[in-house]
Computed example of a mutant assay.
Amino acid sequence: MFLIAFALVMDEVTGDIQCDISWCMLFADDVVLVDESKAGVNRKLELWRRTLDLGGQVVAQKDIFRYLGSMLQKDGDIDEDVRHRISAGWLKWRQASGVLCDKRVPQKLKGKFYMTAIRPAMLYGVECWPTKRRHVQKLSVVEMRMLRWFCGHTRRDRVWNEVIRERVGVASIEEKLTQHQLRWFGDVQRRPSEAPVRSGVLKRGDKIKRDRGRPKLTWDESVKRDLKDWDISEEVALDRSAWRLAINVTES
C-alpha cells in the first residue's frame, strides 16, 4: 500500500515532464529524463523544481491510476485496463508487422510468433481480473482481427473462426485467460491462510447492506463462474496437472 501511494506521488510530481519512453522513465524511486540537448534536460528539471515548490498541493485525486503496467480504477472495474492491454497488443503487432504480414512466412510460424510476443502483452495481469463477458468479447474480437489479418482474410471472406485458428494453431484467448486465472487461483489457495496474498482477496460479506443495482463482480466470483462454466471442481483446480487436462487447451 505504501509503495502504491509513493508511486502515485511520483506520477503526480512528474506530470509536467512525462513523455513517451524512452524520453522519460519512472521507476519506484527514480526518474530518468532524456532529451536531445542539455538545455532540454535543464528545462525539464526546472519544470519539476517548480512542481516540487508547490509543497502540499502536489497530490490530486485521480479516478484512474497506472501501477506496474496495470490501470487501476476508483470504481474497481477493469474497463481501462482491458483497453490498455488491447493497445499494448496492437503496439506489439505493429512492431512485428513485417513478419506477420509477410506471405513468405508460414502461417503456423506466425501463430507461434503471435503466442510468444503479442498475446502475452494482451494477457498481462489478467490473473487478478474480475472478468465480465464483455471484457472477454473485446479481447476475442481483437485477437480474431489479428489472426485474420496475417492469414490474409477479412470477415467478408466468410471464413469460420475455427478454420482460422486451425490454420495458425492458436487456441482462443478466452481459454488462455481462463487458464491464467485458474492457475493463479490454485497458487493462491495453496498458500497458507496467513499469507499476504490470501488477505488481498476481496469477498462479499453476508450481512452487509449494499446499494441498489447489480453488485460489483469480484475476482473470487469470477473464478467460481469459470469453474462452473468449464465444469471443474475446486479440488481439480488446486491440482495444476489435473486442471490442464480438464480445460483441454489445444496448444502449449
Score class of each variant (00 low, 15 high):
Phe2Ala: 10
Leu3Pro: 12
Asp16Gly: 04
Gln18Val: 11
Asp20Ala: 11
Leu26Asp: 07
Phe27Asp: 13
Phe27Ile: 13
Ala28Cys: 15
Val31Lys: 10
Val32Met: 09
Val34Leu: 10
Val41Gly: 04
Lys44Asn: 10
Glu46Lys: 15
Trp48Ala: 11
Thr51Phe: 06
Asp53Thr: 06
Leu54Ser: 15
Gly55Ile: 02
Val58Ile: 05
Ala60Gln: 15
Gln61Met: 07
Tyr67Thr: 07
Ser70Pro: 05
Asp77His: 14
Glu80Val: 02
Val82His: 01
His84Met: 02
Ser87Ala: 15
Leu91Arg: 04
Lys92His: 08
Ala96Arg: 12
Gly98Ser: 14
Cys101Gln: 15
Lys103Cys: 05
Arg104Gly: 01
Pro106Ala: 05
Gln107Arg: 13
Gln107Cys: 14
Lys108Arg: 14
Lys110Tyr: 06
Lys110Gln: 11
Tyr114Arg: 10
Ile118Ala: 02
Pro120Leu: 12
Ala121Gly: 01
Met122His: 02
Tyr124Thr: 00
Gly125Leu: 04
Glu127Thr: 02
Cys128Lys: 12
Cys128Asp: 04
Thr131Gly: 05
Lys132Cys: 01
Arg133Lys: 15
Arg134Phe: 02
Lys138Gly: 01
Met144Phe: 05
Arg145Trp: 04
Arg148Asp: 00
Arg148Gln: 06
Phe150Thr: 02
Phe150Cys: 08
Phe150Ala: 06
Gly152Phe: 07
Thr154Gly: 09
Arg155Tyr: 12
Trp160Gly: 10
Gly169Asn: 04
Ile173Glu: 03
Glu174Ala: 15
Leu177Asn: 00
Gln181Thr: 00
Gly186Gln: 01
Val188Asp: 01
Ala195Phe: 09
Pro196Arg: 12
Pro196Trp: 07
Val201Pro: 03
Lys203Cys: 03
Gly205Lys: 15
Lys207Glu: 06
Asp211Ser: 12
Arg212Leu: 07
Arg212Trp: 12
Arg212Met: 08
Gly213Pro: 06
Pro215Trp: 11
Asp220Cys: 07
Val223Cys: 04
Lys224Glu: 05
Arg225Ile: 01
Leu227Ser: 01
Lys228Ala: 15
Trp230Glu: 02
Arg240Cys: 08
Arg244Ala: 00
Leu245Asn: 11
Ile247Cys: 01
Asn248Ser: 12
Thr250Leu: 08
